[in-house]
Design a binder for these strands. Structure first.
Lengths: 341, 341
DNA sequence: ATAAGACATGCAATCGTTTCCGTAGTTTAG
DNA sequence: CTAAACTACGGAAACGATTGCATGTCTTAT
């Protein structure tokens, strides 16, 4: 297959020993400048590419990071991965990307496969079904570098990158209240998710501050089937206890809401106002009416995850990843879905 | 780091030689059922995980496929990768995913890095700036398994998976003509792209069939900057030679068109009709008005690429990938952007 | 003139598998 | 009863890189 020259052949060509050539290519002080030059030029000429597996085996590192996300069709996760790649690529690291499809069993399989050292670290956001986290604690206890972002596991003492979920939930709700909403629904993927909990706390506190009481019927837990979600939201909108505002905690549920509204006679924002965590600004402004968004700094989150790991992995004796929660704020952009002109 | 037991330790524990243990785990006929059972249960007990690099080094295969796409924030490419993963995962293969960000220099770097055997094969869609394909021919000439999809290199004799670009371009244009369009613009990313050429041919032939003559000013080549694209399209829409129909050859340009239209007084579909290659059905039907789409079978394309490769890579003596163009048809879904009620 | 140090290079072990080859012990054929 | 053929396993080489140690040559100081 990839039958380029190897170190031994290169050395033979140069009439040097493999060790000398290796050292020359790795710029060792033990090798004279003259031989280094010769070696390097010959390596270029023969297009020598070191075998990554031989190297990985010897050095016990793969120069590979695994990224585990719940889904690919999401502008948030796409941007995070872009951010990660932007940094890791500069360090010559490669990215194994896995999607769990929000399925905890797939997540477990993936994580277990990763324990054999194929990757030097994992950056992940857990699936919405993940409640048993034994697969993750095991990984972490073995000293495997693990970084969470967005949907984190608080119980695992490592570094996590999130946005200001609580504040954003609070401010988003407050904004709806300021626009006159009194009955605000909260849309979520799963009650277990860290982002759900934090955003929901913000939502509750904003209600409380405004003297509004939360109503359990206004909380909708959605599933993986878009059609089902749309129908559930439609039921809510056409039911006896119709909300006048909606805070959607994830992108896809905002889209489901727009679909649901289309199936009713309701108007946005006159009858129902909508705000959502949302990362695709282009789409947000194209929706009809344009969607008021809480924009997460997806790309930056990815970059920060990667920067931290690169620091740990490329420098010699680095400490374990600290048990730390790093918050990068979101930005609320008010558009037409919450403003009656 | 990932300090599990290795084969030698496992063998010592069992008082067997490493070779026997290896054979037992690989279900060799040379090993008695009794020892196989013992070995397997001990391996389970000690949670033995073979070192992937040692194995890769020895077997000269990595059980890894590289996927190279122009961008991650695209429902088409996301779905293709999902399709690929669906298949490869069943065979225990891993996915290295790279984005070129439509940059041919990044593409070259990635491809060159991949030549060292880190992956057993590459599945790719070339960047819009790729005209010099020497990096790809070199790869292919070395016998590296290479599969193209969507944006292909016709000059490289390997298997390529596309949709029926010509027919879809033809039918899409024909649909616009049937709806009364006489001046139809064609939006593309780059003239060099295979998809542009084929879809454009379909467009031209449909015009010809209807007795319409193509106008060069109605072809817009877009760039990577969304704002610039929007302005260019707006110029077209507000200029003296305004089209009454638009065929967009890629998803992102349909969105840019909607943005552009929003900046004018024009109405869709009354003043301007729009049809686009588009993979995000949920978004297409939410746009205002909903977008008539040519939906590419993204997931299936990914699956087919992966199936072909799995067949080649997992069976013993497989021939080279045939020089073959496999077409999986798109489906046109008519929505409001082309229909005046 | 000789010992000591610096410099440049080679030998061989190592990483963890797989697999070729060899060899005891047992069964089968002639 | 002996030769041939199996069966079940062990020893050791190989994959391709890195690196500790050894070695040889050349300066330089005493």
């Amino acid at each position: 297959m990839s039958t380029g020259v190897n170190l031994k052949e290169l050395a033979a060509e140069l009439k040097l020993s493999p060790s000398t050539v290796s050292r020359a290519l790795n710029d060792s002080y033990e090798i004279s400048e003259a031989t280094k030059k010769k070696v390097i030029s010959m390596a270029e000429k023969l297009n020598y590419q070191p075998n990554p597996f031989a190297r990985s085996l010897r050095e016990n590192k793969s120069k590979t990071i695994a990224v585990v996300i719940p889904e690919r069709m999401s502008s948030f996760f796409s941007k995070v991965v872009d951010g990660i790649e932007e940094i890791t690529q500069q360090f010559g690291y490669h990215l194994l990307v896995y999607s769990t499809h929000e399925d905890v069993d797939r997540e477990k399989k993936i994580v277990n496969l990763l324990m054999n050292g194929r990757a030097d670290a994992i950056i992940m956001s857990v699936s919405s079904q993940t409640s048993d986290i034994s697969h993750l604690t095991r990984l972490h206890e073995r000293g495997f570098p693990l970084v969470f972002f967005d949907r984190i596991c608080s119980d695992i003492p490592t570094t996590k990158f999130i946005t200001n979920d609580y504040e954003s939930g609070f401010e988003g709700t407050k904004h709806l209240i300021q626009q006159g909403c009194r009955k605000i629904a909260f849309l979520m993927l799963s009650k277990e998710l860290s982002i759900t909990k934090d955003r929901y706390r913000g939502y509750l506190d904003a209600l409380k501050q405004a003297g509004l009481s939360p109503e359990p019927q206004l909380n909708i837990t959605c599933c993986q089937d878009e059609e089902q979600n749309i129908e559930a939201i439609k039921q809510l909108l056409t039911g006896p206890n119709r909300p006048d505002g909606i805070l959607s905690s994830v992108e896809k549920l905002a889209l489901a809401t727009y679909h649901a509204v289309k199936r009713t006679h309701l108007r946005i924002p006159e009858d129902i106002k909508i705000i959502s965590f949302f990362s695709n600004l282009s789409i947000a402004s194209l929706l009809n009416p344009s969607l008021t968004t809480i924009t997460q700094p997806a790309f930056t989150i990815g970059e920060e995850c990667a920067k931290l790991l690169m620091k740990k992995l490329t420098k010699p004796r680095q400490p374990d990843l600290p048990n730390q929660l790093i918050t990068i704020p979101s930005k609320i952009t008010i558009r037409s879905s919450t403003i009656v002109l």
